[in-house]
């Protein structure tokens, strides 16, 4: 269970980073007006993704094993 939650957090964090990065970086836009993020607060999504992925370490250490309960 602990390993699964940790893996899910790392994967979820990476997905959020990708969504945030691609949302904040409108590649291909060739004018200033089109270079705004594709959705508001996309950079915040990227930052949350970084924090979620790193917080997986907390879960891995703090979450008890089921057999130890």
């Amino acid at each position: 269970m602990r390993r699964n939650v940790t893996a899910a957090m790392i994967a979820g964090g990476i997905v959020l980073m990708l969504v945030g990065y691609l949302g904040a970086a409108p590649w291909g836009a060739d004018t200033v007006a089109n270079s705004d993020p594709r959705f508001s607060f996309a950079p915040a999504v990227f930052v949350i993704g970084v924090i979620v992925a790193l917080s997986a370490a907390l879960v891995y250490e703090l979450m008890p094993d089921r057999r130890n309960k």
């Binding site: 990065y21 904040a24 970086a25 270079s35 705004d36 993020p37 508001s40 607060f41 950079p43 915040a44 990227f46 930052v47």
Partner: peptide, 13 residues
């Protein structure tokens, strides 16, 4: 605005 508009093309991001 940083969390709203920061652009990864910029090193500030």
């Amino acid at each position: 605005n940083l969390f709203r508009y920061a652009r990864p093309q910029s090193p500030f991001f």
